[in-house]
């Protein structure tokens, strides 16, 4: 019998993007006047598509000396057509793999959570004076932080449903329930994904340490902290649904490091919701 580790490992390469993103990519790419701005928008609304596109961009096919951490940079560096073809290929291949997959997590709610964390992480970074040219990476870090859950949800959906139920019934952090019931958690899975996807150090740190931010590398501290705060806040305030029914409190030390308060975040709530609404309209999600 295959172990959970084997099942999960096999699933990583077959992760499907969202059906709406796929349709939107295909629709946009038919337009000869498509603008880089719109292509970037549609890719960056989807964690799987973003991750897989970055994986290809950073692969041996292009042998870039520096890892690329955003689609915007890839479009300038490799050209619009290259990235367009790559997005189309990634989207359409993913769509084929998607057939018949039913997961425990509601993907639309989960997508809203990822997008919310991305938008908020970016907002926090901007508020703390981060250079605008680096800010997109905060969004992508937020978008991808829970990528491990997508694999668990798809590879072992029945078991994962029990994990989510346990988190709900016991109001316990999901990650602890994962460890108890599955022996692995979404960070273990994400570690595997990061090594396969060749993501930048900052993205990898944000994904691997968003639950244990104090243990991250000094160099990536800010992006990890922004994603940690954004994640807890979105869970506490039901921005989308990540399966985590027992989120921890935001660590005051981290807020002090960033120089923001929870009140600041509440002031941005409307903007975060507007961004998610705009994305839904763009992707034609209900």
């Amino acid at each position: 019998m295959s172990s959970i580790h084997d099942l999960v490992s096999k699933e990583i390469d077959k992760l499907p993007p969202l059906p709406n993103t796929v349709m939107k990519v295909v629709e946009l790419c038919k337009d000869p006047n498509l603008k880089p701005r719109d292509l970037n928008k549609v890719i960056s609304f989807d964690p799987v598509l973003t991750g897989k596109a970055l994986k290809l961009i950073n692969s041996a096919y292009y042998a870039l000396t520096e890892k690329v951490s955003s689609i915007v940079r890839a479009i300038i560096m490799l050209g619009f057509n290259t990235v367009k073809n790559l997005a189309l290929t990634t989207a359409v291949l993913g769509q084929v793999e998607k057939m018949g997959s039913i997961g425990a997590l509601d993907m639309e709610g989960f997508w809203r959570h990822c997008l919310g964390v991305g938008v908020l992480a970016k907002k926090i970074a901007a508020a703390t004076g981060e250079d605008p040219k680096n800010i997109e990476e905060y969004f992508i870090a937020g978008l991808l932080h829970d990528i491990g859950k997508i694999v668990l949800n798809k590879a072992i959906s029945e078991d994962y449903l029990q994990v989510i139920k346990k988190s709900d019934m016991e109001e316990k952090p999901l990650i602890e329930c994962e460890k108890e019931l599955l022996t692995i958690d979404h960070i273990d899975v994400a570690r595997n994904i990061c090594s396969k996807w060749n993501l930048s150090d900052d993205l990898e740190q944000a994904i691997l340490f968003h639950h244990n931010p104090l243990e991250c590398n000094d160099k990536s501290r800010k992006v990890v902290y922004c994603v940690n705060v954004a994640n807890i806040w979105c869970n506490q305030n039901s921005i989308g649904f990540s399966g985590n029914m027992g989120p921890k409190e935001i660590d005051k030390k981290i807020l002090n490091f960033l120089g923001i308060s929870e009140a600041d975040i509440y002031n941005w709530e409307n903007e975060i919701e507007k961004r998610i609404r705009d994305a839904s309209v763009f992707l034609k999600i209900s």
Binding site: K35, P36, R37, N40, S70, V72, R73, I75, I76, M77, F80, K122, A126, D131, P132, K133, N134, I135, E136, R275
Partner: peptide, 27 residues
């Protein structure tokens, strides 16, 4: 910077501005 196409560089919202700045850095 192809991310400025069809946009007024002096009148962008925050989202477009950040993308524009990042693209300019890469350029």
């Amino acid at each position: 910077n192809t991310f400025a196409d069809d946009l007024d560089v002096d009148d962008m919202d925050e989202f477009d501005r950040q993308v524009f700045e990042e693209a300019q850095d890469e350029v």
